[in-house]
Simulated assay, not measured.
Amino acid sequence: MPLPRVSIICLCYNHERFLKEALDSALAQTYPNLELIVVDDSSTDNSPTIIDEYCRRFPQISFISTGQNVGNTKAFNIGWRASEGEFIIDFATDDVLLPDRVEKQVNQFLALDKSYGVVYSDAAYIDDHSNFLHLHSQKYKPSLDADVFREVLKRYFICPPTMMMRREVLEELNGYDETLAYEDFDFWVRSARNWNYSYLPEITTKRRLHHNSLSAKYYTSDGKMLRSTLEVCQKAVKLLRTKDEKTALIQRLKYEIRHAYLTNHFTETKQFLKLLRDITPNPGVISQLITRLSNSEISLSFIRRLYYSLRYGKS
């Protein structure tokens, strides 16, 4: 019986410094039935030249240029819709795949029934120079199997670049929502409603932390990412089935309210507060206090900076 085809969608935007290491890691996979599609989102650095060089050396790589900067969600959709794999990996080319990543995750899928749409795993975080920082599992545990819908509403625990997705999941969702500034939370909420997730307790990926990464800009942007989170929470309200799921979403909203307020995103704070009041008559004392403070746009951002300075040694 032939092995299922796996498509690695390699997303590049100004990853010149990391691109060779990333592509080499994809090419070094021990799994034989691979399709590599590099989508460059109109990089302004030397990334396209490096990709062209790799395509000449390795004809198994396909190269798609978006022509103009379209953003991560649309760039990924362009890539996976051009692919043929039964399983899909969304691979940012500032990260690194361990050699047996694909092989282990396919084996995990083959041991599961068809209700499972995503396999995810542990990851090692690295810095700009590929130095080890910490494991994902050291900060976010426990990791869960099967029905994770309630848990993804409540908290962050899945390391996004470790996911391998069944193609049918993306087809059912029509890919990522291209109106959003980032994809993770929305994908988890929409897919976990109908599909099971399986956790592989092994390190399969090195995730790079650097100042230009999307996650690093979550609270320092102009609010686009917070507004995307709000839209996903609004979608989630319509997907709730149980009291526990509603409680989980309330917990998420309270978390987002605190951090939006403490980063001086007053407009987004008010929008999250409105959604919270729409789904519960008792938003809590802290949320009521933040309502008054945000209406007056009183900044307490120093509290968040002090907390991160004391806990992590950074602002």
Rank of each mutant, 00 (worst) to 15 (best):
P160Q: 05
I298H: 09
K141F: 15
P4H: 07
D186S: 13
A248D: 03
Y199C: 06
R258W: 04
G71H: 02
C12N: 15
G71L: 10
S62Y: 07
T66Y: 05
S296C: 09
K274S: 12
D128Y: 11
E245G: 03
A111H: 07
H265N: 04
Y199G: 06
N14V: 01
Q251N: 14
E202A: 08
H211D: 15
C12P: 09
T280L: 09
S25Y: 09
D122R: 06
C12T: 15
M164Q: 05
V118R: 02
L276P: 01
T162G: 09
R57S: 15
C55T: 15
L226W: 00
G67K: 06
V152A: 04
P2R: 10
F18K: 13
H136M: 04
S294F: 02
E86A: 13
R207S: 12
A111G: 14
F302M: 07
Y307D: 08
L110W: 01
V118P: 01
R241P: 00
T263W: 04
L239Q: 07
E35Y: 08
Y31M: 07
Y197V: 03
A192N: 06
L3F: 01
L153R: 01
L170M: 14
N107P: 11
E183C: 03
K139W: 12
F266K: 00
L214H: 08
R56I: 10
S301L: 03
L23F: 05
Y125Q: 07
N196P: 03
Y312W: 11
D41Q: 14
I298K: 13
K139F: 11
S143T: 05
Q288A: 09
Q60H: 10
Y197R: 05
R57A: 15
S287V: 03
C10W: 03
E202G: 02
K20L: 06
T162D: 06
Q288I: 13
A123F: 12
A192S: 15
A22Q: 08
E171C: 05
S43F: 07
A92V: 09
I9C: 05
A124K: 11
Q60G: 04
T263Y: 06
S228P: 06
K114V: 01
Y54C: 10
V102W: 01
V232C: 06
R101Y: 11
T263C: 12
